[in-house]
Amino acid sequence: MSEILKIENLNYSHRLKKILQDVNLTLQSGKIVGLLGENGAGKTTLMRVITGVAHATGDITVAGETEVAARKGHVSYMDHLGAFSLGTHLDRIVKFYQTVYADFDIDRFNELAEFLNIDTSLKLSALSKGNKEKFVIALTLSRQVELYLLDEPFDGIDSMSRKDIINSIIKWKPETATIVISDHYVSEISSLLDEIVVIKDETINCHLDADKIREDKGMDIEDFYESLYERGTDND
């Protein structure tokens, strides 16, 4: 096991408002990590900063690389495809990914697309919320990188689509790659996670092994997470 991500003394402000402060975080390779926090806590911001789309002060190392341009080659960040018009056919988007990312593995995409029942002859506008999410996941996981960042992939989708997506993550996650999944509703993915990282009050509140929480506290992950928000509770 090696270090895949190291964040040191990271600070990020937007229009003079502090979003993230003194963030320090180290993730090992081969893990599935839940990034938890309320809406607006800074989960998406942290992912954007790791990828290099947003700029912050502090040091970020991904697979040994610190420069933004080099880092980008090691991170696959889930894009919600907002830049494509709704009339775009899915196979055009796949072509675009193939052109832009040298690490995009088309065989892997085809396997995922078959598993998730994605019809790439359709237009973006023809996709249900669940099918769009599946398509986005297939694109994201088809890049061959060390770090995958999935930004709320289960937000507002039906339970069958969720199951399919979870199974595709289990099946196609490269052994040494680490996947970070952000969510504000943890119970739907808790059995999948090695570790959880909670963002609260603009910083990392805790970073713990999921089974260790269950073992030491006899609590489910959802209850533990909620306990962090109860005032006056000592969580150590």
């Binding site: 289990i170 999948l192 996670l193 090695d194 089974d211």
Partner: peptide, 17 residues
Amino acid sequence: VRQLAVEVTANVNTVQR
């Protein structure tokens, strides 16, 4: 290990443990 992980819907590391 991976087949078992898919069968029980858990992480490969957890199954390995």
